[in-house]
Each structure stands twice: as structure tokens, then as C-alpha cells.
Design a protein around this nucleic acid. Structure first.
Lengths: 208, 208
DNA sequence: ATAAAAATACCACTTTAGTAGTAGTGCTTA
DNA sequence: TAAGCACTACTACTAAAGTGGTATTTTTAT
């Protein structure tokens, strides 16, 4: 089993040393290396690549947009970002576009090969501080959750049903309450949260 | 520099072998191992732990809720899930609760020690398929975004204002339209999305 | 050039949501 | 034990949202 790797990287030196690294290692081959996103977008659909190493900064169209175009149509290709940018914004944009891994250019050669294997096998190799950024992004809710803590258990239960779009009557039926009781609870929820509509209540408690 | 590790794990055998592993390795010490979430919640605030290995399945309160209670008050402690559950739901709940890493019990001993070091150093160690789940979760938007693509520019603009909780009159004023026009747009949005309320429309287009 | 889609707008109507006041029961705790 | 909160429930009302039909103008695509 040989992993077919493509490269999209504008800096000649990096592109060539990556090519040499990959072709010099058993189990890998790199037959195509592109300088621009545009070339890659034209060629890649006709090739049979397993993994594509993608830089972010490229002359015209950037690497993130390049993935965004290719990934939806070529789901079996695994895109691995290999770049020097590691700001939160770049990381999340790349992952949203369809990258499955994210390593920095400073990664040592043997680790780059490891990452290629890992992404090929369905993993998501990431540099350690990038993984942390990604994991931390799940925890944001804690801040605003101060709001939700003002509510009683019953109120949270009703808010949760509100968030799913149920009407008062449906909530009442689910909880075996009268519609009027549901109405009262919601009035109290709104007062505690200092809002006066369902959407405002949800935006305060389930942000983002 | 010695990393102070705590363990919360109900199965005696696993708890003890983890303790032995950690105490037998240079640079690590494990002075406290708890059988239940309740014990951990009582004791941990008084200890000075760097990393806590947490199981999910525990007798009464589970490990995720245990983290949810401890993490907000003890931000410097790094929680590392070590469990046999690796369903999507458990993973995301744990990360939301405040876990910074997630490995499975089948991880080999040396890798467990590596993960402890990594989480202690601000990384987020994860088993390879768990990392992929996490990364894939960023791409979900692409699926549901098929929904939003059915809408015209004006409709997306109005949907966006709807999501912020504005009423028809307010949207009309912002866009210099009549309320009736806004009403018509919203009717068309709902028809395209096959929903019949603001909350349902938002849940279909801005999921999660 | 013509059909389709998008954007604008009105009327009339029904349903749902939100506001206000009130009140009984039961549990907790100071 | 009295005050406070949570949970339940009612009436009455107003405001907002949602449904249906229709129509003109502009833009876009075939």
C-alpha cells in the first residue's frame, strides 16, 4: 500500500524538500506538486490522490478556499494543512473548509510522515497547541452559562424545549402541565434573563 | 518538576494499575485515587493536582458532571478523560464540560504517560479517531448549509436579523422595507426551509 | 425575448406568544 | 414559624407571528 501524496505550496524550496522527503520514504509517493491553488483545483479532480498537503498562503487564491472548493467534490481526499499560520482564525477556517489535520511547517520530517499516515488512516493529526485551541473552542459556553444558572430545574427543562421550537401547548403536553403553567414559567424565565422573546432568551443562554 | 496526577476510576483493578504505572515513572506521582465523583469533588479542591485522569462511568454521578463541577473553580487542573466510551456524544459532552484531552482505556501505558505530559504542557492529547470526530464536527455546517443555500441574498439577510431576535417591524426599519414585505420574505423563507416558526428556521440553518 | 425568480407591497384573517394580576401548595431555611 | 422560592394554575388582555391570496416591478437566466 503506497500513499499517494499531493502538495500545494508556493515556496519552491519547501515544495521540493517535501517532495524529496516523501519520495524518499517507503510507502509514500508524491507525483504532483502545485505552486498555486488554481493549478491544484484544475488538476486534482483528474488525479487519484490520497492525501494533499496544503499551504495557506498562496499567490492568488489561498489554501483554505482551495480546500473549500475541492473537498465537497472529492470526499475521499484527505487534506492536511501544513503552514506557518497558527492563529485561531486560520485554524478554524481551515477545519470548516474541510481540512482533516493541521500541522505547522516547523514539524520535523519524520512527524510529517506520521501525520500523513494518520490522516490517511482516518485520524486528525494536529500540533499540540492547535489541538488545544480546537478543544477549548468547545468550552466557550461556560461564560454565558452564568445566565442559565439563574434558572430553576423546571425552568431549564422548559427553556430546552423552547429551544427546540415547541409551542406552549406542546411543552405542556410533554410535561403534563397546563398551558397556563408553561406560560407562567416562561414569563419567569424571561424576567430572570431580562428578555422578552424566545429568540432573545435562547441567544442569551445558548450563544453562538 | 514532578507532575501531580489524580485518578477518578471506580474499577479497582484499573485504578490500581494506573497508580502503579504513574508512581513507577520518573517525573510523575499519584497520591490520590478516588472511586466516585462525589469523593473527588470533596477532596480535589483541597489538593494541589496538575492533571486528573477521569473515567466516565462511575457509580452515582458520572465523570463528565464531575468535571463540570470542578473545572470552573479549578481552572489550572487539566482533566484528561480516560474511558472506554468513545461515542460522539460522550466526547463532546466531556469537552464541553471542561476536559482537555480524551484517550481510551486501551491506550498503551507509555502513551498514557505521554498524554499526561501533553495535557500538562497545554496540549490536547486525543486518540486518533476521537480527534477526527472533533475535527469533523467543524464541517457539519457544510451539510446543513445546503439548506441556507436555497435562500436568496435578501432572504439570508432577513434570516440573519431574525436570528438576532428582531421583530418584523424592526427588520423592516433596518432594511427600509414595509413590514408586509418582511412578512412576505419570511413566508417564503419558511416555505423553502419547510418550517413554520422562527425557532425551527434557525435550528435548520444555524444548527448546534 | 420571454419565462422564471427575486424583491417589493397590500389586505384579511387565525394562531401563538407575551404581559399582568392573582393564588394555592409544598418545601426549605434562617 | 415565618419568609422565600419553586411549582402549579386560572382569567383577561395585547402584541406579534404566521397563513393565504394577490399584484407590480426588476433582475436574471435560458
Amino acid at each position: 500500500m503506497i500513499i499517494n501524496v499531493g502538495i500545494v505550496e508556493d515556496e519552491k524550496q519547501i515544495r521540493e524538500s517535501l517532495t524529496v522527503l516523501i519520495n524518499g520514504s517507503e510507502g509514500f509517493t508524491c507525483l504532483y506538486a502545485f505552486e498555486t491553488a488554481e493549478e491544484a483545483i484544475l488538476a486534482i479532480p483528474t488525479l487519484n490522490l490520497d492525501v494533499v498537503l496544503m499551504d495557506i498562503h498562496l499567490p492568488a487564491k489561498n489554501g483554505i478556499d482551495c480546500i473549500a472548493e475541492l473537498k465537497p467534490k472529492h470526499h475521499s481526499i484527505q487534506f492536511l494543512m501544513c503552514t506557518s499560520f497558527e492563529d485561531t482564525d486560520s485554524v478554524f477556517k481551515a477545519l470548516k473548509a474541510g481540512a482533516s489535520g493541521y500541522i505547522t511547517k516547523t514539524t520535523q520530517p519524520s512527524k510529517i510522515l506520521d501525520a500523513i499516515v494518520e490522516v490517511f488512516n482516518g485520524g486528525s493529526p494536529m500540533s499540540s497547541n492547535i489541538a488545544r485551541k480546537v478543544v477549548d473552542s468547545f468550552q466557550i459556553s461556560n461564560k454565558e452559562n452564568l445566565e442559565i444558572q439563574k434558572l430553576s430545574e423546571r425552568e431549564k427543562e422548559i427553556l430546552n424545549l423552547l429551544s427546540q421550537g415547541f409551542r406552549y401547548k406542546e411543552i405542556a403536553d410533554k410535561l403534563f402541565l397546563s398551558t397556563e403553567t408553561v406560560r407562567t414559567h416562561i414569563r419567569n424565565i424571561y424576567e430572570k434573563l431580562q428578555v422578552n422573546s424566545r429568540t432573545d432568551a435562547l441567544n442569551k443562554t445558548f450563544p453562538k
